[in-house]
Design a protein around this nucleic acid. Sequence first.
RNA 1: GGGCGGUUAGCUCAGCGGUAGAGUAUCGGUCUUACACACCGGUGGCCGCAGGUUCGAACCCUGCACCGCCCACCA
Length: 1081
Amino acid sequence: MPDEIPKLYEPRKYEAEVYKTWLDAEAFAAVPDDRANRYVIMMPLPNVTGALHMGHAMDNIMQDLLIRWHRMMKDNTLWMAGTDHAGIGTQAVIEKRLFELEGKTRHDLGREALVARIQAWKDEYRERIIRQQQSMGCSCDWKRQRFTMDEVCARAVREAFFRLFRDGLIYRGNRLVNWDCQLETAVSDDEIVYEKVQGHFYHIKYPVIDPKPGEPEHVVVATTRPETMLGDTAVAVHPDPAAAMEKKMASLRERMDGASKKERIEMKAELERIEERKRTHLPILLKLRDMAKDRRTVLLPLLVRPIPLIVDEWADPALGSGCVKITPGHDPNDYDVWSRHRNEIGVINILNTNGTLNENAGPYRGLDRFEARKKVAADLRTRGLLGEVEDREIEVGHSDRSKTPIEPYLSKQWFVRMGDVPGGIVCGAGTKKIFRAVGLAQACIDTVAPNYQSPSGKRLMFAPDHARYGGTYKAWLSEKRDWCISRQLWWGHRIPIWQVSKFGLDISAVLAGLPNASRDELWAWVTDAEGRIYGKPEVETLDPRERYDILVSLRNPAAEAKYAAALEAAGFAQDPDVLDTWFSSALWPMSTLGWPDPATAALDPGQRPLGPVHGRSDCLSYYYPGSCLVTARDIITLWVARMMLMGLYLMGDVPFTDSFIHANIQDGKGERMSKSKGNGIDPEDIIDKYGADAMRYVLCDMQTGTQDIRLPVQAMSPYTGELVDLATAKHGRSIFTYIDPDSGKEFDVLGSMPDLPAAKIISERFDIGRGFCTKLWNAARFTLMNLGEHKFTPIAPGRLAPEDRWILSRLSRVIAEVTDELRAYNPSAAIGAARDFFWGELCDWYLEIVKPRLKDEAAAPVVRTILSFALDQVLRLFHPFVPFITEVLWERLNAQCPVRGLTAPVHGSDLLINADWPTPHPNWEDTGIESEFGLLRDFVRGIRETRALHNIPPGRKLDALIKATGRSEKILREMRPLVAHLAALNSLEIGATVTRPAAAVGHVLGDIEVYLAGLVDADVERQRLSAKITKLLEDARKSEARLSNKAFVERAPADVVEKERQKLKDLRTQIDLIDAQLKLL
RNA sequence: GGGCGGUUAGCUCAGCGGUAGAGUAUCGGUCUUACACACCGGUGGCCGCAGGUUCGAACCCUGCACCGCCCACCA
């Protein structure tokens, strides 16, 4: 019964129940069927490192919005959920806890025990994440969810690795990698954050061995990391320092022309500096250059090791001493230098994996690198070989995971070859979408080219700004840097390679001794230290004295069972490393659908089958390629590009056609929300206080385009109950604690300090969403209360009142607008259009207008028909945004009025989630009635303004007289009852000859004069009219000025000029009318 | 150092060539029987600064300042 509906919507009463209803009805189920139109979203899999925050909530809500909308549009809709094992991230969390709580390292525990602990953590957080997503209302098909390390995904990883390896696109080689000395693993470039730290710039003297007369006794080199000198293998000087300096000066002069004044001053100073150096340094550099060509050496101090002078363009004669120390083992640039001088110099590694110095560091062996830095500097000083030490701010790369400085470190790593490959590569081998590309990165770049089409006719589009985000994607891929995929971790997919190192002499024999296996199960390559791969004919030409690696990949566990033992007996060992997390996530669009063979995927009990169903061969062929990838900017390179890579290479097609890049959520200070910063809000906190729909409403409303979102957060003080703004509050002893400004006491926002009370974090922003839900609830309440036992009967269009025609016209337009905005990935504009219609038009005007008709039994049925239909359509429109409340109201509407419609019946589906998305009805659209209502609304607002000005209570009915002619008169006459009702009028006289009554206040609206009788307050009226006329006169003056400007009249488009003339005319009419009124006062 | 964004009402953001907008806050007035988590009305802006293009600039161009992000590098 409608009178049971409470005044306030209480989300907590309904949300869990509604969600269960959806689950019971299998409303989220994705099953292939005969529909050709599909909509597929692969969820950006959350890491199991911790719980979700508002940034994730934004990501999930955007996906749910799109999914629910497409489901209502009757696409076969799949939203794939799952979680990521997040190799480094998760292992780092566990190792940190292990050390903090038990004082142990992973080596104390061993591989198996550590992995078991991580598993337990993963299970806990996976459950928590799913709970969070469900409380937000996420409608993913939970019976399909995957985990990147489950059996289905593991099989895909292994298969992908095998194919890439077989095709020579994965190789193993010596590379300088970013080494995390705490986690003892390589980390990728993307996992490094640069931080400014205070450091020193040391100048060191290397004595020249046997200097000849006139030659310098020392060369000076400089470094911020003096301990690396222990690994120096050369000192470089530029081969033609004079030319290099000239070139630099010429380039500076050229750039000066286009530069700003400030830059020009700097450049001029730089030019003068180089000019000076030509005098001071050039003769010495030329001498050193000649010495280098003469194969002369300098003495590496401390280790007393001679190292050669070499010539290389890396040495910049305009910088420092012009000489540069070369440490190929610990500096990327120096490594490049080494690669150009392999026959002259060597590579020395001075580090152990934990960041201490190794035996190559001689007396410094065993010292941590930072202690060694101090000691080396001190020892050099003692020997008089340390020059100037400058204080300098230096940017140091830190591992994003362990927060410790990374070291460039030479080690054997696995790589995916991104660059162009001689002869090209084959993509989509074994599929019908096979095509050739010059290389993996290029294949990905091609997908955003304007006229690109994949073999199935698809391409990649970024939204909402393709040029910008496509640019990010392209720029990153264009570097074509090989992708380091090995990690020295224990948590992850083990690299499926067995290897042995042998001299070239023995290679043939070892190869001949490999198990007699099919090439579909086992693949072997021979490779040298640099990763060069040798094919079968080349094996015969290998240097018999050099060592080479024989790498064997076993395709799957079956092959492993058959051959691994034999390999191990022959001296092969499995690679201890695991794959980069992104390797398995890159396969997500396929692995989740059962690639490479859906029919035989090892699913969990109760999961939906991936093989043949409903006449479709399998889920992979039905749901791949998907539709849209929803994520944040920083994921474009990390993940979007890599999914593209794997999709193109393995499937011959893009994994999705759209990539919707949404805003990042920031805190009140403009910093990106993250758990580690302590500024993350748990969506469940918000849901608990405001409801899931309120949160969703606000997130949708804030997703406007490319603008990141500031979400000022406050904590409820556990001491006073007052709100504390965290953007301005002072931190306590950690980033998770703050000082309550009122009591001066410290509180915690994350529950991280057992001895401190925790504060709940909230944000006032969500009041908006809660307010909206209340409004929707009450509008429905009003409708249901007035519907009674209404039964559908078709209405004749001729019986519609003007307000009916107006609201139906607006409804049709808004349906079209919301749909268009969603299609354009503009959730804020979509929800804004729906809200403006619902709140600003349906509630504020239509519901108010029809109240009298509802009391009139003759007029009521038509109104009831329209109200029930409008509610039906509004609930549908809002459902993707605020699914819970709309579903609750849908059930009530169904109960009371199961059949809705205007001219033909519309049956509501049992559940709104399964209802059809509304479609516009162009034949309802009526520009004329909309413009007439515009006049009506302006008119009513004018009277309300007058009432407010004269402090007339809304309850007091007024007598109004209106002087109007022409169209205005006609419209007002037609809408006379509406005007009287909305403006609370007692009587209303409309006519062309109306005159001002003796006691009245009046005002002017366009060409209409309005008098409210019985009111006398000439002062207020005069003041108001004067203010208005002043403004109008100013406008008219501007307009006149514009029209008297010849250039404007001649050059501006005719319609703009005409509009301006009309505007001036209208202004003058109003001015005259107001002027006349003023004179009467 | 290179690149990409941003700077609009106290706050959070739309608008992106033709008379400055929303929500919120704030100030008045209303418990007008759907909703006081509401309704009605008002106040509030040299649209970061300086030039330029244009008949016309918040909007296009150039420079500057500040904030943020990405990439590279600093021997």
